[in-house]
Nucleic acid binder design. Structure first.
Length: 187
DNA sequence: AAGTATCCATTTA
DNA sequence: TAAATGGATACTT
């Protein structure tokens, strides 16, 4: 089901760059990772009053998520772009706590489609609000990382942020944390 | 460590 | 409609 209503774009500043949030009349509809050239883009038009609040909520939630994976307050989501199946998957994703991971198979089981494993993976890839809808917490059964539409670097970073030591090494930008830990261990 | 068989919602033709 | 396509998995070699 396609809803071609116009969306309002707003920048979300984080320590990793500027994300783009898109709001519809009922909430946050899409969240995009920073682009390399984001800083060169013009600032978007001022959003209407309601979106100003959502933008603030989104900014706080995203920054909390990028620090410890646990945003305290989320903006309303507009998930109308999804099919029923996709929305069930996305709802299930939101039940996974930071620090936990799931398998594509167990995700499929969660929504009572135990065999729709690949389809569940597809729905993860179609997640319009990455990070806040934590599709990055789904790993392959082999304990490998699986895929990520925003790029595997981001998936590794997000998992590292949430405390998965296995992925921390792949994230040089988290070196402050690593160095602090090494110093602690050496002492 | 590869290759294959089967899986199922979506997309594309 | 039909075929191709994945953020998969469990089997085989």
């Amino acid at each position: 089901m396609m809803h071609s209503a116009s969306l309002i774009q707003a920048p979300i500043r984080t320590r990793y760059g500027i994300f783009s949030a898109y709001f519809s009349e009922i909430g946050l509809a899409r969240l995009e990772f920073p682009r390399k050239f984001e800083l060169l883009e013009k600032t978007p038009d001022l959003p209407p009053a309601q979106a100003i609040r959502w933008r603030k909520q989104t900014e706080q939630a995203l920054n909390q998520a990028l620090r410890n994976g646990r945003p305290s307050d989320l903006p309303p989501f507009d998930l109308r772009s999804g099919t029923d199946f996709q929305r069930r998957v996305w709802a299930a994703l939101q039940t996974i706590d930071a620090g936990e991971t799931l398998t594509y198979a167990s995700l499929a089981a969660l929504i009572h489609h135990p065999r729709a494993v690949r389809a569940a993976g597809g729905a993860c890839g179609a997640n319009p609000i990455p990070v806040l809808i934590p599709c990055h917490r789904v790993l392959a059964a082999s304990r490998k990382i699986g895929g990520f539409s925003g790029g595997l670097r981001w998936k590794e970073r997000l998992l590292a942020i949430e405390g998965h030591q296995d992925f921390a090494a792949a994230c040089p930008e988290l070196n402050l944390f690593n160095q602090a830990q090494e110093i602690t261990e050496a002492a």
